[in-house]
Design a protein around this nucleic acid. Structure first.
Lengths: 115, 115
DNA sequence: CGGACATTCAACCAAACGGTTGACGATTCC
DNA sequence: GGAATCGTCAACCGTTTGGTTGAATGTCCG
């Protein structure tokens, strides 16, 4: 995974990781709180967070005994630049984004509870 | 890979596949011609093309005995929308894109010939 | 028809991925 | 100090991925 674009896109390819990013869009969160909505072990979420951190998409900072996860949206910029070159996309309506989030959420709920 | 975003990002996570997309940005190409610059078998490239096609990023059309590959940039739109929601990125300067392409190319050449 | 060309299929392989469980290392609180 | 809490590490497991090779399929051309 030498290329940073590799790491970014690979990190984004997993729906659990995208969901985590979406949650972090709201606010910084402790690892335990990140894990709470998902039907998988804390260790699994911890691994996902490591993948996101290594891609530069989040950062983790220990404060006391809890580790806080913070979105680092700058890492998305490179990938976004790469992609926009292909479509000459219009700058995107934030409403579009809301709809996508809603869609992903609905899909998650439809597919049996959480994730 | 039920979610289309999964397929799109997973397809983009591979540098060979991104390079193929970049080549197709220039013009439609036959499979053999797509494969030519890469140091791997035609079968391997054929698989990559299948991944790209299943993600909707390219289409393939047989004309005579050659199969033409065509970029389908619309499939990138969903992913682009998703990403832009995170950064409120400015619409991207095409020069930025050129620089990224140049960078990827340099990196590929640096890492021992082709890919 | 038969040969050459363009592409995929099938079987296989090693490595990476996404998950589990259980033990372990920090840190706080009583 | 000792118990509880937060998070990661390590070992393991089944599946997917990215590649190989060799055979098979279309399709054109002489």
């Amino acid at each position: 995974m030498t290329n940073p674009l590799d790491a970014t896109f690979a990190a984004l390819a997993d729906p659990t990781r995208r969901a985590i990013l979406t949650m972090l869009l709201e606010d910084d969160m402790a690892v335990t709180d990140v894990a709470q909505p998902f039907a998988m072990s804390l260790a699994a979420i911890s691994k996902h967070l490591t993948v996101l951190a290594e891609a530069g998409l989040i950062s983790r900072e220990r404060r006391g005994r809890v580790i806080w996860c913070k979105l680092e949206p700058d890492a998305l910029r490179a990938a976004s630049v790469w992609m926009q070159g292909f479509g000459q996309f219009d700058p995107v309506d934030l409403d579009d984004f809301e709809r996508f989030l809603a869609g992903e959420l609905a899909e998650r709920e439809a597919s049996g509870g959480d994730i």
